[in-house]
Simulated scan of single mutants.
Amino acid sequence: STPPTNLKSFCGGFINMVFMVSSMLSGACATPEFLMYLDYFVRREYGDDYYRRSREVVDLSLRKRDIDKVITDCFEQIVYSINQPTGARNFQAVFWNISYYDRYYFESLFGEFLFPDGTRPVWESVSWLQKRFMKWFNHERTKTVLTFPVETMALLSKDGDLMDPEYADFTAGMYAEGHSFFTYMSDNADSLASCCRLRNEIQDNGFSYTLGAGGVSTGSKSVLTINLNRCIQFATRSGEPYARFLEEVVDLVHKAQIAYNENLKMFHRKGMLPLFDAGYINMDRQYLTIGVNGLVEAAESLGIKINPNPHYVAFVQEILGIIERYNKKYRSKELMFNCE
């Protein structure tokens, strides 16, 4: 079909796209540009200053809707549709993620972005739409259970403080109103992550312990999860240093991921991965993810108290440091690793 030309066709096409993409995946589907594109179609219909005229009646039907109501009806159509079960995913709803950005994070990611008609995003209207959606969704959840989208607020920091005080205050205000969402704070907009992953920076392969979703066309090619509790208890009972045993396991997991990546490349060459060919996902920006669980239980098995004490901090740093070291060891031009 042809691209959408109006707000209604965009909403319908967006829902269809999310269901289509998710039918080919077993994981989450993140659409970090969702509100930016929605803003584009709202501006095409109601002008670049629509957010200043949100109470202007634009509907000649009996409902006499204003611009704000037209927009929240779009929110309702998209959110309630995507929260419905889908047959292609064993009658589960799509696991859908979206992102909000402060001005500096947004400009870092989309400052040079051009829509098909050659125009650029307008931060002022995108910002208004982000806030409107967040408030609408928070209120909507008081009326019914809405699992998705999973939301992440991405904020840039500098010298230990947030760069955009307006969004710092807004984020704090949304928490105060009882909203539930991730906050991803970074001093580097090149950092890419998704809703559950520990951050890996593309530039220096750094590693930090922050949740967030700040990237476009990225994600995980594969996730292999290590049961840290089982590994550490097994090593301890066997009389082997747990760090040495865990290094062997982590090394093996990385090799298995590399083998999986070769298999994925073969599928791609044979045209069996249409999402990559269509540009929805960029294989060069996909991570091979090392998952971990049982960290707290492993510490407890060693008699370590689970609170901010030096012994526990050192244990966590030791375990995650092993994974970080092997992530760097096996990284190459076509392989990126992160931790979940």
Rank of each mutant, 00 (worst) to 15 (best):
L246D: 05
C195F: 11
F267M: 06
R63D: 12
T289K: 10
D187T: 13
R120F: 01
R141D: 03
G111V: 08
V122M: 00
I258L: 06
E112Y: 09
G178A: 08
H268W: 07
E340Q: 05
N97T: 15
Y260K: 14
D102A: 01
P310N: 06
M336I: 14
S222H: 15
G215C: 08
V253W: 07
E151I: 10
V223D: 06
G27M: 04
R331K: 14
R55C: 00
D187S: 13
E56R: 11
S127N: 12
M174L: 14
L224T: 15
G215M: 09
I258C: 06
E112A: 14
E151A: 05
F182I: 15
F170R: 09
S191A: 11
R237L: 00
K305V: 14
K265L: 10
N227G: 04
E318M: 02
Q257H: 15
L162C: 06
K270I: 10
F337Y: 14
E112D: 15
T2D: 09
D39R: 06
S191L: 13
L155M: 01
V150M: 05
R132M: 02
E247P: 00
I82E: 02
A299V: 12
E166D: 12
I281M: 02
L252A: 04
D117L: 05
W136K: 11
P32R: 15
M174P: 04
I202G: 07
Y46N: 03
S157Y: 05
Y51M: 00
N261I: 13
R43D: 00
F106V: 10
F148H: 14
S22H: 12
L25K: 11
L192S: 10
L295T: 10
F110Q: 02
Q203Y: 11
M36A: 04
N338S: 00
L320A: 05
L252E: 08
G47S: 06
Q77A: 04
F207N: 00
L228D: 02
T183H: 03
T119D: 10
M163I: 13
N200G: 06
I226Q: 08
N6Y: 05
L156R: 09
T171M: 00
L38I: 06
T72Y: 07
N200C: 08
M163R: 07
N338F: 02
P241Y: 12
Y330T: 12
D73R: 06
G291R: 02
L320V: 10
H311K: 08
R63C: 06
S222M: 12
F170G: 03
N90T: 12
Y209H: 14
G214P: 01
Y167E: 01
Q286R: 09
E247Y: 01
E297G: 12
T225R: 08
L114C: 08
G279N: 03
L224Y: 15
R132H: 01
T5C: 09
C29Y: 05
H179P: 04
V223Q: 09
C196H: 09
R285G: 09
V70S: 01
L35V: 13
A176W: 03
Y100T: 14
